[in-house]
Amino acid sequence: MTSGPDLPTAFAAIVDDFQALTEPDRLQLLLEFAEGLPDLPEKYAEHPDLLEPVPECQSPVFLTVEVGEEGSADGGAPLGPDAPVRVVLTAPRESPTTRGFAGILAEGLAGLSAAEVLAIPDDVSHRLGLDRAVSPLRLRGMAGMLGRIKRQVRERVAA
């Protein structure tokens, strides 16, 4: 399977990297994404209540989405589909698989607009070639994160 034409460049590159590897190496790459997940920005680290839990994951995962120019005040002009999106994710170090999925989303969605995030196919977690090595059950957590990210983006853009 290839990444398909419907993925933004950065996300397509991640999918291609996974697809090019053997199964054990895919797990190793997932581990690297787990290690590469950035720490929470300070304002969220101090206010975890601002983050939304993701119960589809087997471990405590929290996320939030910022839409609009960085530093722009709430209540400004209505946000359009071109508004930039920043995704903030956190997952415990004791859950490297889940953390790896969070890392993939953080990198794959970086710099995208609201419309581009909403256009990410919901089944993207199954394109990484991890269904057998990781199990579909565990991949459900990644779909849960993406679903919640997209819902938050829709709410902000529609508001």
């Binding site: 004791e94 490297p96 059950l137």
Partner: peptide, 27 residues
């Protein structure tokens, strides 16, 4: 473990890994 990658982040010296899903469940 619950997490299939946790063993790779560090384990008891000499321990081997057995995954409940990929090793013990029929696919």
């Amino acid at each position: 473990n619950e997490d299939v990658l946790l063993y790779s982040t560090g384990h008891i010296p000499g321990a081997v890994h057995l995954d409940w899903h990929t090793d013990l469940n029929d696919p």
